[in-house]
Amino acid sequence: MKYSEIFKQKMEIARYGNSTIKSYTAALSIFFKENNQFLVTDINEKIIEAYLVKIIREKKISAAYQKHLIASLKLFYKMVFNRLLNIDDLFPKRTEHKLPKYLAKDEVKKILSVVTNLKHKAILSALYGCGLRLSELINLKIEDVDSKNEVINIRNAKGKKDRQVMLPKSLLPLLRSYFKTYLPKIYLFEGQSQEQYSPRSVQAILKQAAVIAKIGKVVSPHILRHSFATHLLENGTDIRYIQKLLGHNNLNTTQIYTHITDVAKSKVLSPLDF
Rank of each mutant, 00 (worst) to 15 (best):
K244P: 04
K217A: 05
T253V: 14
L269D: 14
E234N: 09
D273E: 15
N235P: 08
H226E: 00
I239W: 08
D273S: 15
R240S: 02
K244M: 12
T258Q: 07
V268P: 00
I223P: 08
P221G: 01
Y241L: 10
T230C: 05
D262K: 12
R240I: 02
H222M: 12
S220H: 14
T254K: 09
K265I: 11
H248S: 04
V219K: 02
D273P: 02
L269Y: 08
L245W: 05
L224A: 02
N250W: 01
T230I: 04
R225V: 13
V218E: 12
S220D: 08
H231K: 09
T253C: 12
L232P: 03
S270L: 11
T254W: 15
A229M: 07
T230V: 08
N235D: 08
N235A: 06
S227C: 00
S270D: 09
D262Q: 14
I242P: 11
N250Y: 00
G236H: 05
I256V: 12
L251I: 15
I260R: 09
Q255E: 15
A264F: 10
P271M: 11
F228L: 10
H259S: 14
H222N: 06
L251H: 08
R240P: 02
V219W: 00
N252R: 13
Q243M: 09
T253R: 15
T261M: 13
V268R: 06
H226T: 11
V218D: 03
Q255D: 14
T258A: 04
D273L: 15
I239S: 03
Y257N: 00
V263Q: 08
L245I: 01
T254I: 14
Y241D: 08
H226Y: 03
K267H: 11
L251S: 11
L224D: 03
L232F: 08
S227D: 00
I242H: 13
D262V: 03
S270N: 04
Q255I: 14
K217F: 03
S266H: 03
I239L: 14
Q243F: 11
L224W: 09
A229R: 06
T261W: 02
V268Y: 08
N252S: 15
F274V: 14
I256S: 06
L272N: 04
T253N: 12
N249G: 07
H248P: 07
F228Y: 04
H259G: 09
D273F: 15
S227R: 00
I242D: 06
L233F: 01
T253S: 15
S266R: 12
I242G: 09
L233I: 05
D238F: 05
H231D: 06
N252F: 13
T254P: 14
T254E: 04
D262R: 12
L224K: 00
S270R: 11
P221A: 04
Y241P: 01
P271L: 13
S220V: 07
A264M: 10
L272T: 04
G236I: 01
L251N: 12
I223T: 13
L224T: 01
R240W: 07
F228E: 02
S266T: 11
V218F: 11
T261E: 04
L233E: 01
T237Q: 10
H259I: 08
F274E: 15
K267C: 12
